[in-house]
């Protein structure tokens, strides 16, 4: 590498430019912090809601979901939770999987599953909220 650069007239800085984070390196990190901050109130709301509906029958559960506040909070909880889970799992894979294709495959499968489940959960909440 050292010999390689010595033979070239181009400054090494020229090669390195544009290879960095290009000012978007903190995006994933910030996303994790933002979602964790949002999840503090959402989690507390969710736990209280679950405790209030332990062993509830279908009618009682649906009545809970019919409230617009409940539906909005549940959709937010689900969306932010799955996003937070997917980005957290990405870091776990990046730390422990050192074969590139395995890392990519694990991340793709996790993200597809997370966003698929998030969509299914959100549609479920909407169906309960607006459905007959």
């Amino acid at each position: 590498m050292a010999n390689d650069t010595a033979k070239q007239l181009r400054n090494p800085l020229q090669k390195a430019r544009g290879l960095g984070s290009a000012k978007h390196g903190a995006e994933h990190w910030w996303g994790q912090r933002l979602t964790s901050l949002a999840l503090i109130p959402l989690t507390l709301w969710f736990v209280l809601g679950v405790i209030g509906h332990l062993g509830a029958d279908h009618a009682a559960f649906q009545a809970w979901m019919r409230s617009p506040v409940t539906a909005a909070m549940m959709i937010l909880t689900v969306a932010v939770t799955f996003h937070h889970a997917a980005s957290g799992m990405q870091v776990v894979y990046e730390d422990y999987l050192h074969v590139e294709w395995q890392k990519l495959a694990a991340d793709i499968v996790t993200k597809f599953l997370c966003y698929g489940l998030a969509a299914a959960c959100i549609v479920s909440v909407l169906k309960l909220s607006f459905g007959a």
């Binding site: 279908h58 689900v78 889970a85 489940l117 959960c121 909440v125 459905g131």
Partner: peptide, 29 residues
């Protein structure tokens, strides 16, 4: 964090079962 990611499956089951109807929800509960 990893355990909770797996645990979201339980949350998804709960909500989807509720949307599927009383029988499925009773099974989940």
């Amino acid at each position: 964090g990893i355990a909770l990611t797996v645990g979201t499956l339980l949350l998804a089951w709960w909500l989807i079962a509720a949307a599927a109807g009383p029988a499925a929800f009773a099974r989940a509960q």
